[in-house]
Design a protein around this nucleic acid. Sequence first.
DNA 1: CTCCTTCTTAAGCCCAGGTTAAGCCCTCGA
DNA 2: TCGAGGGCTTAACCTGGGCTTAAGAAGGAG
Lengths: 220, 220
Amino acid sequence: MNIIAIIDDDVYIGDMLEEVLRKEGYQTLRAYSGTEAILMLEKNTPDLLLLDLMLPGLSGEQVLEKIQDIPVIVISAKVDVQDKVQVLMNGAVDYLTKPFAVEELLARIAVQLRKREVVKSDIISWKEIRLSTVSHEIFVGDHETHLTRTEYAILRLLMINPEQVITKSTLLEHISEETPDCMESSLKVHMSNLRKKLRDLSGKDYIETVWGIGFKLRDE
Amino acid sequence: MNIIAIIDDDVYIGDMLEEVLRKEGYQTLRAYSGTEAILMLEKNTPDLLLLDLMLPGLSGEQVLEKIQDIPVIVISAKVDVQDKVQVLMNGAVDYLTKPFAVEELLARIAVQLRKREVVKSDIISWKEIRLSTVSHEIFVGDHETHLTRTEYAILRLLMINPEQVITKSTLLEHISEETPDCMESSLKVHMSNLRKKLRDLSGKDYIETVWGIGFKLRDE
DNA sequence: CTCCTTCTTAAGCCCAGGTTAAGCCCTCGA
DNA sequence: TCGAGGGCTTAACCTGGGCTTAAGAAGGAG
């Protein structure tokens, strides 16, 4: 059951949305100001946000900046293209102008949630390695181990781009999303640990270093 | 470099889109009918599709059904909510009605592409030699090797200026950016190593020495 | 034939990369 | 509130690849 948060100070629209979404089978959360939204997100983790731009307290744009990992659909009375572009480039996944058709909103919500579903439930596999994106466990044959966040981020990036060289800077960028200020020296250790786990499981060294550039999965 | 396919029978709009997208740094593909689109997708795998609904041959809706794993943004003159809903529920990730603002389209394209963490490598090619600017690997036919930083810098300079003589001093300048204090004596060794690698891959000696001046790629 | 440029090979040095161990920080549970 | 454990980072040490230097071989110019 998916949870959708409604952030809008207009009670009439908010109530209407809540009723429609409930009828559609979603759980709902409400917030009536930007600051309240932030507080709510500290305690709850909805699957999607419906965000109005003109809010008391923090503006919708400011709320958007603080959000990560949750898709945000902005619903606003602002029809100007520049507003749309700015919001979309700052992290929103979609933008609807008021007034809007409820059916269209529901469809666009479904688009975002179905995309998430695919990413969420998937198991990434390469050769005989299988990586669970949910539990962060790897399986090789009938052996298995758990990976740390960073190790997972590294291996995931490598497995999504099989037999492609990933530069150290690219790796650092993606890793830094989760653990900021990751230095190159740390990366070495993480690589070492990850290699050790893979070696313990499979007996082979899957990760090949490309000198002066980065790493890739060995194709042989 | 992301590849975007434009599927629209309206030549005027298609040309306009192609120009805008190219200017933005995307590569583009074109198809003018539903059937042509299917054929194109058998040979190419773009990162995103811009799809018109009213197409000769197969309709846009029918094309959409056959597509998986590639995000599709539908661009159509149909403004009816039911059309939008149907398309979005059948796999499209976004829907724009004509006429639309180009900036908004670009923003919505960016939204779809920013999630894909796929790392794409740029490749410089000359004759049957292909050189990856990311991984510093060279491919000749189905053979491949890795080049060191300096070897890469040399070959890159030669391949960017094909069949043109590069003086030793020019080479030294460019190489020194990466490894300072590179002397002419070192350059000779690097040239030697580079030639050996090319020879091992292709059997030919691609690099021609111009006596007293420098080097160039052999045109023959 | 001789000189000079260029090519190749071999040896040593330097620095990127790998490994291990120790310390810090955060989270969780008693 | 405090201790335990896991994860991240830092530092030290070791290995090995790449760069440079030097010396000898090869090949063109005069």
